[in-house]
Design a protein around this nucleic acid. Structure first.
Lengths: 344, 344
DNA sequence: ACGGTTTAAGTAAACGTTTAAGCAAATAAA
DNA sequence: TTTATTTGCTTAAACGTTTACTTAAACCGT
C-alpha cells in the first residue's frame, strides 16, 4: 500500500501528481459538474491514497464560513448541561460540523468577552444558555447583528429575537408545588439561585399560582436565593432558612441544590419526607437511589439540546426557518418518589 | 462614541483609516519593534474604536497554527469527565486558546474518524481519554507523527510515547478491596465494563492483590463486565450475577454502575451494607446522600484535566517539556460512607 | 562630508482553498 | 458548412493575515 508522504499533502500535491490544475482538484472533490466523471474518480482515488485532508482554515477563510459552532453554557459539571450537550452533539457530528465549547462560569464578563471574540467569524452559529448574572445584552445583540445566528436553550434571553428552546418551567413548578400541597404541605419554600430572571420568574410564577389555587398565602420570605455553587456556605445558609421558616416542603430549582437540601435536612435532623418534603429540578440518575429517593422535575435536556441544534443547522443549511419565530417549549416530567410521599 | 461599521473591519480597513500599510497594522498589533511607539498607539486605539477582531482563520492559515486544541472523550454525561473538562478549561481560557469537543461514545470508529480529520492541522494539540474498544492505535500514531502533540488522561494508551495523566487505579482498587475485606467481606465481585484494557488491568490487579494478601482465593466468575451504558439490561445482568454468585461485597468501577448496583440490590431485596457492601469509583456529589451513603473512590478529575492541559500548553509554548517522559499519577481518595459499614 | 548603523516604515509573497471568468475542443443545431 | 452550445479543464484573483525583504530617512562617528 502506498504510504502518505510525511510532508503535508495539499491540493497542489494532488494537482502535480495527477498533472491537472489545482482548480480541477478542488472542483472534483466538491463534485462539481465542471469535471468529467473519469477525472473525478482519479482525483478522489489519489486523494484517498495520499491521505489528503483539506485544510479547514484555508477553506474557512475563502468561504467565509467555518463549519464550526460555539456552545456557550454556564457550567458543565451538571447533568442537565452535559445531557444537553449530548443532544447538540448528536446533530453536530452528523452534520460534520465542529463544536467549540465555552464555559462562562456564570460570569457576565466572561460571556461578553467570548462574544467579542466570536465576532471574528470564528463560528457560523451559537447555541447558548445565558449566564445567571447577564443583564446587559449588548454583546449578544452585536453578534446577532453581525449575522451570526444564535439559538438559546433553557436559560434564554427573552429580549433577543431568535429561537428559544425552553422547558415548561412555569407549569412544572406549578405541578411540583401542587404535588407538595396535595401531599399535605402548608408552608413551602422555593430554593433558588441568584440571577436567571426568566427561568426564575417562570418557576416562581408556577409556584405562586399553585399556592393561590390552594388558598395558601404566599410569603416573600419563603423564597431563598443561594449562590450557584455547591458548597458549605450554601448548606449553612439553607439550614438557617429552614430553621427560621420551618417549611414543610421545599422546591429546589437547580440540580446541586438537591445535595445541599438533603445535607441541610440531615444536619437539622429533619426526616424527609415526614418532617419536610423535597422536590428538585434535576436530571441525575442517582435521584432514584437517594435516601429517600428524590421526587424530581426531569427536564428534557437531551431533546432540548438536540432541538436547538436542529434549528440552528436547519437555518445554516438555508432551510426556510425563521429563528425569531421559533419559541419551543418541551415538557418536563414530574417523577414522584419517596421524598414527597405523604407521612402517616 | 464612534460606532463600528456594520461591514467587517479588517486590517485593510484600519490601514486605510490610518493611512499606513497593512503590514504596519499587523506589526503594531503584535507589538513588533519595527513600529514606532506613537504609531502603535494610534493603531491600537483605532482597532479598539472600530471593534477590530482579527480573523482567526486567516491567521491560522498563515501561521500554520490554530490556537485551538481538541478534547476527545468517550462521553460527557459523567461527573468524572465533566469535572476534568473544567480542569482543562481553566487553562485553555487563561491561555486564550479554544477547545473543540469531540465525543467518541466509546466507539473506535468514531475516534479514528476524528483523528483523520485532525490531521488537517485543525488543532495544535489533543487532550484525550481513549474509547473503551480502541485496540488499534494507528490513528493515534499517525496524528502524533504528523507533529500534533497528544496528552492522555485517565484512559491512556500505554503504547503511545507521550504524556499520560493517570490516577492510581491499582492502588485505589487495592484500598477499596482491602477496605471491604476489613469490613468482613469474603466474596467480593468486581463489576466493570467491557474494554479499557489499561484501567481495567490496573483495577483488577489492585483488587487481586488485596484478595491475595488476605488469603482469599480469587475466582474469575467474580469479575463481571457490563456494557458501558446505564440501562435496564445492565441491571438485569447484574442481578443475575448477584443471584448466582451471592457476593457480599461489590466494587463498581465506573460511575453509572453505582445506580445500577443499588437498583439491582433493591430489586433483590438485599440490604446495603448488611447483606452486601458496595464501593464505587465515582465523583458524584450525591454519593453522600444516597440510601445508604455510598463509599466512593473519588478521582482527582479536575486536577487531572488541569495537569493534562498544563503539560500540553507548556509544550506548545515551547517550554522544555518532554511529553514522552511525563507519566503522572495523581492519587484517588477512598471516601468511606455507610454502604460499607460493618454490619452487626 | 561620508560611510555605517538604526529606526520606521512599505512591498509583496505566502498560507491552501474556492470560484468567477475564460478558452479550446467536441458536439449539436441550423 | 457554419454557428451555437456544451463539456472539461485552466487561469488567476480572492479570502485576511504574517513576515522576509526592501527602502528611505535620520542619526552618528570620524
Amino acid at each position: 500500500m502506498a504510504e502518505a508522504k510525511s510532508n503535508k499533502v495539499n491540493m497542489k500535491t494532488l494537482a502535480k501528481v495527477l498533472n491537472v490544475s489545482i482548480a480541477t482538484i478542488s472542483k472534483a472533490l466538491r463534485d462539481s459538474h465542471d469535471i468529467g466523471e473519469e477525472t473525478k474518480q482519479r482525483v478522489i482515488e489519489t486523494a484517498k491514497l495520499l491521505h489528503y485532508v483539506p485544510n479547514p482554515y484555508a477553506s474557512s477563510l475563502r468561504k467565509r464560513s467555518s463549519n464550526t459552532i460555539a456552545i456557550i453554557i454556564p457550567e458543565i459539571a451538571d447533568s442537565f448541561f452535559s445531557q444537553a450537550i449530548n443532544g447538540i452533539e448528536s446533530i453536530v457530528g452528523q452534520e460534520k460540523y465542529h463544536a467549540l465549547i465555552y464555559l462562562t462560569h456564570d460570569s457576565y464578563e466572561r460571556e461578553a468577552q467570548m462574544f467579542a471574540d466570536l465576532s471574528s467569524g470564528r463560528v457560523d452559529g451559537v447555541i447558548m444558555s445565558v449566564a445567571s448574572n447577564t443583564k446587559e445584552i449588548r454583546h449578544i445583540q452585536e453578534l446577532q447583528q453581525a449575522g451570526v445566528p444564535i439559538v438559546f436553550f433553557d436559560r434564554v434571553c427573552e429580549d433577543i429575537p431568535t429561537a428559544k428552546i425552553k422547558t415548561d418551567d412555569f407549569n412544572s413548578a406549578y405541578m411540583a408545588t401542587k404535588h407538595l400541597l396535595e401531599q399535605g404541605c402548608k408552608n413551602i419554600s422555593l430554593v433558588t439561585i441568584e440571577g436567571y430572571p426568566s427561568i426564575l420568574q417562570a418557576r416562581e410564577g408556577g409556584y405562586k399560582k399553585a399556592l393561590t389555587e390552594h388558598q395558601v398565602k404566599h410569603k416573600e420570605q419563603n423564597i431563598i436565593s443561594c449562590s450557584n455553587k455547591y458548597n458549605q456556605e450554601n448548606i449553612a445558609f439553607l439550614k438557617e432558612h429552614i430553621d427560621k421558616i420551618k417549611p414543610d416542603g421545599i422546591i429546589a430549582t437547580v440540580e446541586h441544590l438537591a445535595t445541599t437540601t438533603y445535607l441541610a435536612c440531615e444536619e437539622l435532623k429533619l426526616n424527609i419526607p415526614n418532617d419536610i418534603k423535597v422536590v428538585c429540578f434535576t436530571n441525575q440518575i442517582t435521584a432514584a437511589i437517594l435516601n429517600p429517593p428524590l421526587t424530581t422535575v426531569l427536564q428534557p435536556a437531551y431533546d432540548m439540546g438536540r432541538k436547538a441544534a436542529e434549528l440552528l443547522f436547519g437555518h445554516l443549511a438555508g432551510k426556510p426557518i425563521q429563528l425569531e419565530k421559533e419559541n419551543i417549549t418541551l415538557p418536563s416530567k414530574l417523577v414522584v418518589r419517596d421524598s414527597t410521599r405523604a407521612g402517616d
